[in-house]
Design a binder for these strands. Structure first.
Lengths: 200, 200
DNA sequence: GTCTATAGCCAGATAGAC
DNA sequence: GTCTATCTGGCTATAGAC
């Protein structure tokens, strides 16, 4: 993150601007200003806005995907897995707060991205997680639940507050500081709640 | 929704386009086409894009807010409240699937809206809900939990799958049909899980 | 590689006939 | 109220000097 080369300066500036305003809402001039560099340079290095955007999106996506594999591919008991995942995932998002809403927003606006990206980059695969849940249900360790619902519960609890941050803060009348505190608290609270809700 | 007047035709077309593509991604021409009407009419009735957008946003916001008051202001025991709310809220979103992500996305992109809208329109106020939770904790009916976390849990579980629909469907490899089925299932599943997780 | 200047296009907005 | 035609500004992208 030293912004050593011009190309890195542009990419980092583009990340900041695109993640905040999205593809449609961002201006090449603004990215140039943010990078403290001439606008023509953006085209020199990335040819056009679309390609620059794709570089940013790919980078965001490739940071997010491995995080999911923490829950999909680790070899651990389900409760341990859930605890480790929620804690590390929220930690990760606290360091990259714009990432989830950026990726989700752009996927909503260009659903065709799903095909081109998700298939190219190697999609995190929840299959083994689903199998593990089924197995632990049969063993009587956890209550009967559709594994897809369980995964959706976990992701919802971790991601939603960040995606809806502005709304949540306005609704509950909380400051940035209190919001961060609540998120810190959630690192253990979420797994406690989820485990309680499925424990046999 | 009969599109009787021209003004209604425009507004309904604008709702569809804005909710799908957002303010920055939408084109006045596209709204005109969607309304099967001349582009100049948009300006005749709404003066400019910003005002048309605000009309759409205000309408969306005023549909969403009363739904929240179902949980904030009803006079019922906490478990009943949670059951009724999750079920009716998901029902409502199934009928207006673009609403939550539209409102949240635009709030993220223009945080200043929060001030102008949320304060003008009368914000749903969670205060009495928080008090009720505190009371039921003291009465020993539910476990100790920060009421804000509980509210965040409920909203997360209801809203996230719709906001991240594209991502969720891609990740879990499910069809539109299966997605809707899962959401139907969630109408009772969520409250069961949440109640189990806080029951004393 | 970096800059200035500008081409070219597209979208929002308006003028004015009917 | 509704339309066609057009203006204007802003934005992406490129040409070309250094």
């Amino acid at each position: 993150m030293q912004d050593s080369s011009t190309e890195e300066k542009i990419l980092n500036a583009a990340i900041r601007v695109f993640q905040k305003k999205g593809m449609a809402g961002s201006r090449m001039q603004e990215i140039a200003d943010e990078a403290k560099i001439n606008k023509a340079m953006l085209h020199y290095y990335f040819r056009n806005k679309q390609r620059l955007f794709e570089a940013v999106f790919a980078q965001a996506f490739s940071k997010l995907a491995p995080q999911l594999n923490l829950i999909f591919n680790a070899e651990e008991a389900i409760f341990v897995k859930i605890k480790k995942f929620t804690s590390s995932y929220i930690d990760f998002i606290l360091k990259n707060p714009y990432l989830p809403s950026f990726v989700i927003q752009e996927l909503n606006n260009n659903p065709e991205f799903v095909t081109s990206f998700v298939s190219n980059q190697g999609r995190p695969n929840p299959k083994s997680f689903f199998e593990q849940v089924e197995k632990e249900i049969k063993m009587g360790k956890i209550q009967k639940i559709n594994p897809k619902q369980l995964l959706m519960n976990i992701l919802s609890q971790c991601l939603f507050p960040f995606i809806a941050e502005v709304m949540v803060k306005a609704l509950m009348q909380i400051s940035d500081k209190e919001f961060t505190q609540l998120m810190e608290e959630r690192k253990t609270l979420i797994s406690d709640q989820i485990i309680r809700s499925i424990k046999a």
